[in-house]
């Protein structure tokens, strides 16, 4: 299904098309990687809603990115439970290993490193979300292994269209 059809399917779930802006943005972001102005305009046009409404939502919610992010978005939870279980050390570790700071993207465009609020998986703190997947009970060794497998995965997929590639397994 193309982006327009997917958005139409989502819109059919609501009595008001404005409600479909959030699902449409999620769909558009999946298709485009992030949400630059022209994509927001397209979403507004498909739904027939005001552009500013789309822009408002694209900036209010943290899962939407109006700027590009790396191939793998490393989202480390540093909220209370993860902090108590050592998230700070993990962040420092990743900053060293990847050579980027919080919010940065590696020069090869592979990794963007962020900290996020509680991921709702405190039983396996410290936790990091990458793509659709949660990785819990992390320590430096597990992190290294994870980054390694992501790199390998990216290598294997180098010839595949990134948008249609499955995300790496758990």
């Amino acid at each position: 299904m193309g982006m327009r059809e997917q958005i139409e399917t989502a819109a059919a779930r609501y009595p008001d098309r404005r409600s479909a802006i959030m699902p449409a943005l999620l769909i558009a972001q999946k298709a485009h990687g992030h949400l630059p102005g022209p994509v927001l305009e397209e979403v507004a046009d498909i739904l027939g809603v005001e552009r500013i409404w789309v822009y408002e939502l694209a900036t209010f919610y943290t899962l939407f990115h109006t700027e590009p992010v790396g191939r793998f978005h490393l989202q480390l939870c540093d909220n209370i439970a993860c902090m108590l279980c050592g998230a700070e050390r993990l962040l420092a570790h990743m900053e060293t290993v990847l050579g980027i700071g919080k919010g940065g993207t590696t020069p090869d465009g592979l990794f963007t490193l962020s900290t996020v609020e509680c991921l709702g998986a405190c039983e396996m703190a410290p936790v990091m979300q990458v793509g659709d997947d949660y990785h819990g009970n992390l320590d430096a060794a597990r992190l290294d292994a994870l980054l390694g497998s992501l790199r390998a995965h990216a290598g294997r997929l180098a010839t595949v269209d990134p948008a249609s590639a499955p995300s790496p397994g758990e």
Binding site: R17, R18, S19, M22, L26, W53, F64
Partner: peptide, 25 residues
């Protein structure tokens, strides 16, 4: 129907959730 949030704690507040469902901040 499932409506996916997009990363805002305030959506847990019930009236903010309704606003979000209606496609507003």
């Amino acid at each position: 129907h499932i409506h996916c949030g997009a990363g805002a704690y305030i959506c847990g507040e019930e009236t903010a959730m309704l606003e979000s469902l209606e496609g507003r901040r």
